[in-house]
Simulated scan of single mutants.
Amino acid sequence: MSSLSFMEKLLDGVKVEWKALSELGELVRGNGLQKKDFTESGVPAIHYGQIYTYYDLSTIKTKSFVSPELAKQLRKVEKGDVVITNTSENLEDVGKALVYLGEIQAVTGGHATVFKPGECILGKYFAYFTQTEVFSSEKRKYAKGTKVIDVSAADMAKISIPIPCPENPKKSLEIQSKIVSILDAFTELTTELTTELTVRKKQYNYYRDQLLHFEDGSVEWKTLGDVATIGTGSHDTQDSIDDGEYIFYARGRAPLRLNEFDFDETAIITAGDGAGVGKVFHYAQGKYALHQRAYRIVPREMMHPRFVYHCIRSYFYVYIQKASVSSSVTSLRRPMFLNFPIPTPSLAEQARIAAILDKFDALTNSISEGLPREIELRKKQYAYYRNLLFSFPKPEEVSA
């Protein structure tokens, strides 16, 4: 079915009007809520970060509270209201919306605007619309600021929303409900997959800890310096070439490219400094180039490379945090690697353990075959249908 025939069937001949948000309900900017105001119990409060945490539009119950005395001074949020972010360090997060589905009246602060839907718009319909490119384009026109970007409640009120059959609120809400139910189904599926991924990660961690735990005396323990060669590369990030022949591992998750290689081997790569310090992002096989502040760990013959990979990936970050005299490790030096303890069961046992952990690793982390890939595909499918369901024609005078 083409997008045109799909929308024609959905609308069943009714007209669509684009109306300013101010015509569709009441908008009230929040006020006065700060982190220091939060309490362990009291009146539910929706704070800045919660809109991102719960942006799946599932059933919302706040995790934050304020005292009843303070709540009297704050803007109220009723069940069905939409809380919209007004400020953020990046434009993408401005205008994100959360439908409050809690049974108890909540409050919110000055970071947000509360939209109280009128008779011809569903809160969830509007919340889904805020995820579209059309809405993003509109809010961009009103954004102010550089370090902190703000779209005021007054400007938010000017943004146009497509309303099918506005002269007949009952009919309009029926059409909106159909759109919402379709998008809810995709959202629910993605949520289920995400929940499944969380379970699988916990399962992976459990089996990993079981498989890498050895009773005293059952295996010999050595240090990483005994069982692997450790070193750095010689390149800087600025050396990278977009279409380079060889992979170039720097300090972040995203590998770069280079026209020359430093090593031809199997190695575990970890960042020497920066945000990824002590974490393993890459497993190198074959020819590659390496950043001067990234480390290569090359297991010797008595060690299975994937077994070493799982040991380092699982425990090295925690090890250096404990071993460091500083409360926060910002950079690594080669001596910090040398004393990292590692068990050395037989090669056959290492291979068995590595094979099991590889399966869990693929399921929980692979973007080509695991649950992350499935979640990404579902998100793309959801985005496609969301754009399709909001592909209402926009009159020239509204879009000008």
Rank of each mutant, 00 (worst) to 15 (best):
T146D: 12
R333S: 14
S314K: 14
E374L: 06
L21I: 03
D155N: 15
L11Y: 02
D236Q: 14
I51Y: 10
G110Y: 09
Y142R: 04
Y249T: 07
A323F: 12
V151S: 07
L224G: 00
S64G: 06
I175N: 01
A228G: 06
P166E: 07
L24S: 06
K36W: 12
E374D: 08
S368E: 14
S160K: 15
P164W: 00
S136E: 11
V219N: 01
A362I: 11
D239Y: 01
Y295W: 11
K394D: 07
A228C: 12
D12P: 04
I161A: 01
S58W: 04
N90H: 09
Q285L: 10
A20V: 15
R140N: 13
Y295N: 06
C165V: 01
R333I: 13
D226N: 09
L212W: 08
F135S: 01
G233C: 07
N205M: 10
S137V: 09
G102T: 06
E188K: 10
A143C: 11
Y319C: 03
A250K: 02
S234P: 00
F126V: 05
F65N: 04
S64I: 09
V308L: 15
A275K: 08
I375V: 06
A294S: 13
S399Q: 15
L332D: 00
K144F: 02
D209T: 05
L363H: 08
E138H: 13
K158E: 12
C311Y: 04
K201R: 13
S331A: 14
S391Q: 03
L388A: 02
D150Y: 10
D243S: 11
Q203K: 04
H235S: 10
